[in-house]
Amino acid sequence: MNRDHISDLPDHLSDSNQRAEMATLGMWIFLTTEVLFFGALFLAFTIYRHKYSADFVAASDHLNVWLGGLNTFILLTSSFFVALAVAAAHAGNRKRTNWHLCATVILAVIFLGIKAIEYHQDFTEKLIPGRHFNVSGTDSSAIAHQQLFFCFYFIMTGIHAFHMIAGTGVMAWMIMKNLRTKEDPMTQTDRIRVESIGLYWHFVDIVWVFLLPLLYLTGLERL
């Protein structure tokens, strides 16, 4: 393979196609570790959901389905924009890539804002596990099980939000970098970076897509 024209290719790679493939593979390996990470939480939740189903359904009723649904819509839209950013990067259009990344970041911030509003509502309704936890009912074990639901809710959505903050930070960095180099043509490195953050972002979206039915949608039916 003729590597003369590629100046910055490391020795262990034979051509730039392999470089792109290895970057994608590396990101997928990382995402697999993230699947392990979230998977354990989902498994623990599922076990208790099965064991204390009535109490978990009653606890889920306290969550705002409309805010959960709105946040899902926002996150799906942000995934759409990240996919557009990747397409723009493939076309070598740095400006368009940047605009799409900006749209993604804005939507991410809106998501986090709505999450903060939800957490605040949960705080005022005394749903945060701990000394002040209070739901209606007199059966102490049912109340304990509802508190367990909210432990899962805060930990899972909290860790998800942390992943979103990290991803948003990386995208903000990329946006700044793009602004500084806006006259330069896009290199393969630029393209690989956008693809990688795209993969990460879609994964975070998929986690939320599963959190929605488990946490929000199995409450009792009322509008």
């Binding site: 996919a83 693809e195 795209g198 998929i206 897509v209 039915p213």
Partner: peptide, 19 residues
């Protein structure tokens, strides 16, 4: 059914958006 719909969404995201 909720999880099945979530799986359908995830499949679309993985197959298309994640290339």
């Amino acid at each position: 059914v909720g999880l099945a719909v979530a799986a359908a969404k995830a499949t679309l995201i993985v197959w298309f958006f994640m290339h």
